[in-house]
């Protein structure tokens, strides 16, 4: 989203004032912008399909388990 002319002017004024008041801070802040510029890709709606598929598999597995009948309670000796 682009800044309006008025917003641009205000930000420039703030930057100039800050440069006068604390040049070291402005230098530190400006170094954050050095180096290779990278951007995080905005996830697309379809990027999450593997997880949606896992949820679907789990739901199908649930139905299969429930239809296969309820398991009898375990003998406690088997637990450990």
């Amino acid at each position: 989203m682009a800044l309006s002319a008025r917003e641009q002017t205000v930000l420039d004024a703030i930057a100039r004032q800050l440069a006068v008041e604390d040049p070291a801070l402005v230098k530190d802040l400006s170094e954050h912008g050095s180096g290779v510029v990278t951007a995080e890709r905005i996830p697309q709606a379809w990027d999450a399909w593997p997880v949606a598929l896992i949820a679907l598999c789990l739901a199908v597995f649930t139905v299969v388990l429930l239809l296969s009948g309820s398991p009898s309670d375990l003998p406690h000796a088997v637990i450990r």
Partner: peptide, 23 residues
């Protein structure tokens, strides 16, 4: 790694079911 994790997830889910209604 995703396939291994999904197998483990299904295994845990099966364990939950296998523990029985009372459990």
């Amino acid at each position: 790694d995703m396939i291994i994790a999904v197998v483990a997830l299904l295994f845990a889910f099966w364990m939950a079911f296998g523990s029985g209604a009372e459990a």
